[in-house]
Every structure is written in structure tokens, then in C-alpha cells.
């Protein structure tokens, strides 16, 4: 029997498709009560990892478990984990309600659960329409309804915002936060940090199939250094004054601007006043997660050939 913890654990997970290494030596855990973002550029191995967690793809090495067990040992897997995957199929001729009734039977939940989940995702009015005529957003909602049939402890979503309108995204955000607040687990992948930034507490960033960052989003934000950009009347005078205040990391540019790291606009303004330097412009740049995310995952396609070349040269 599974341990009922709602924890998703990935340990030294690897997957090769032929000679292509899709995921290599990936490890992280997703704790209940939180929304974990699973981020990386397209082709980083996110989908493959999620599908290994769900038992759809067999790992080449390592393990992926939910509640301490691999998916095919969970017994009643749909009551433990629900998922919304890209490329998930519906029979085009089957109505939304019939689609849900098929899987309600497989899971062993009563048919009234079908109407509950239809209501929950806002598809009640479309219940008797064929899935083949659904828009992408409606398909996403139907996929979520299917995932929720078994009232699972954990939800795994692969790029769920794809195809959703802004209203749908906002709805999903609230839904996932509430779901996690009830002590359940949410793992949601995206290639855009901004898309999930307001939803997630924890983040796993991967690139090249390897973990680049794993921890609290707040810690990542703190790790990003704040900077102040200032346009003074006298570049040199202000630089000297800042140095005197122990602010040594200063960049000068040709337009007469200074970029000062690890400080605030207010602090720079006070120093300039004391030094008698006039300020024509002052701008504080907050932690730019997107930029950091880009740095962490940067060069997935640029550096790889170079590394291969170097390795080749060493032989």
C-alpha cells in the first residue's frame, strides 16, 4: 500500500530515446500543500519526466514515485494522482459526459461524480457535445475534469495554460492554489516562468534534462541582486561618493549612467544629495525572475555543440 503522503519523489531519473538523452540524473521532491513549478525551455525534458512519474514512459534509470510507490503499484492510481497532459486524447465522437463516464467506471466512482466535475470546470452546458468539436481551452477543461474524477491527492499538469484564455488561466491559478491549500500536491510544468510565477511556491528548473535549480521561489528571488540605475550630473563624483559608502560594484556606461548593485534608490539618492551631485534619473530594478530563469536555462542549444566539439578535441 502507498504511504498516503502525497509526496512526489524523483530520484536520479534518466531516459534515453535511442541515442537522445531526454532526461539525465534528475532528482527532486514535490511536497504536499504546495504548488511546485516545473520549469525549463521546450525540449528540456519536462514532459518526459512528468510521463515517467505517471508511468507512461519507462525510465532508463532511476525512480519516480508518488506516495512512495511507482504509478503501476498504486492500486487505484486515479484516486492518488490526476493529470492534465499535452496531447491527451479524446475520442472525437464521444461526448464530454460519455468520456467522463467511461473513466468514472474505470476508477470506480459513481456517475454523479461526472456531473460534479463538469460543474467544477464549467463544462456543464457542453456536457452532451462531442469532444471533437471542443476548442483547445475546452479540451483542457475536460482533461482537468477527467483528472479530478478520482478526487486525487496530487495533480500533475503539463503546460496547462496552453490554449486557455486569460480568464481561464486566472481561474486555474485560483483552483490550483486552493487545491494545494487543502494539503494536496500540485506539480505544474511551464516553459514560461511568468505564466506560473504567481501560482507556485516551489520551483524546479531544468535544462538539458538536468536540474539547474530546485528550491523555494522566494529563495530564488532573494538570490537575485537588486540594482539601481542612476543618471547623475557628474558620473565621477557620484562614483567616488558611492565607493566611500562601501558600494563598490558600479558600472558606468557611455550615456553617463551608473548601475549600482545591492542597494536601493533611496540610498543612492541620499548619497548623491550629500555629495552635492544632481540626479536627473533614478530607477530601481527589482529581482527579475524571468531574466534569472533565462540565465539558468540559457544556451541549451548554443553551448551543447561547443561542448561536444571540445570533448571531441580532447580525444
Amino acid at each position: 500500500m502507498h504511504d498516503g503522503s502525497g509526496r512526489i519523489a524523483v530520484q536520479q531519473l534518466s531516459k534515453n530515446f535511442g541515442t537522445v538523452q531526454a532526461v539525465s540524473d534528475l532528482s527532486f521532491t514535490v511536497e504536499p500543500g504546495s504548488v511546485t513549478g516545473f520549469l525549463g525551455p521546450n525540449g528540456a525534458g519536462k514532459t518526459t519526466t512528468l510521463r515517467m512519474i505517471l508511468g507512461l514512459v519507462r525510465p532508463s534509470a532511476g525512480t519516480a514515485t508518488i506516495n512512495g510507490l511507482p504509478h503501476d503499484k498504486l492500486g487505484e492510481p486515479a484516486r492518488v494522482v490526476g493529470s492534465v497532459l499535452e496531447n491527451e486524447g479524446f475520442h472525437p465522437k464521444r461526448t464530454a459526459r460519455n468520456h467522463l463516464k467511461v473513466y468514472a467506471a474505470a476508477i470506480g466512482v459513481p456517475d454523479r461524480r461526472v456531473d460534479e466535475v463538469l460543474e467544477l470546470v464549467g463544462l456543464t452546458d457542453a456536457a452532451n457535445r462531442r469532444a471533437g468539436g471542443f476548442s483547445l481551452g475546452m479540451r483542457q477543461r475536460l482533461a482537468l475534469a477527467t483528472a479530478l474524477l478520482g478526487d486525487p491527492q496530487a495533480l500533475v499538469l503539463d503546460e496547462p495554460a496552453n490554449g486557455l484564455d486569460p480568464e481561464g488561466i486566472a481561474w486555474l491559478r485560483t483552483f490550483l492554489r486552493d487545491f494545494a491549500r487543502n494539503g494536496r500536491t500540485v506539480l505544474v510544468s511551464s516553459h514560461l516562468l511568468a505564466e506560473v510565477e504567481q501560482t507556485i511556491d516551489q520551483v524546479v528548473i531544468i535544462s538539458h534534462g538536468q536540474t539547474r535549480y530546485y528550491g523555494q521561489l522566494e529563495d530564488l528571488r532573494k538570490a537575485q541582486r537588486q540594482r539601481v540605475i542612476v543618471l547623475p550630473s557628474d558620473q565621477e563624483a557620484l562614483t567616488t561618493a558611492l565607493r566611500a559608502e562601501q558600494l563598490t560594484e558600479i558600472e558606468q556606461d557611455d550615456d553617463g549612467r551608473l548601475t549600482v548593485l545591492d542597494t536601493t534608490a533611496r540610498h543612492v539618492g541620499d548619497i548623491a544629495l550629500r555629495a552635492g551631485v544632481a540626479i536627473y534619473g533614478l530607477d530601481e530594478r527589482h529581482a527579475d525572475l524571468e531574466n534569472l530563469f533565462f540565465q539558468l536555462t540559457n544556451g541549451q542549444y548554443e553551448t551543447e555543440p561547443q561542448q561536444q566539439y571540445q570533448q571531441g578535441g580532447q580525444r
Binding site: L54, G55, L56, H71, D72, K73, L74, G75, E76, P77, A78, V81, S83, L85, N87, E88, G89, F90, H91, P92, Y103, A106, I107, T146, L149, G150
Partner: peptide, 14 residues
Amino acid sequence: RKTITTSFLTAPNR
């Protein structure tokens, strides 16, 4: 039709 995904996910094992 890729419905096999959901069929696998809702069955104890293949």
C-alpha cells in the same frame, strides 16, 4: 487517438 493515456492512468496497471 491517444485515449490510451487516460486508460493507462485510470487502470491499476497495463
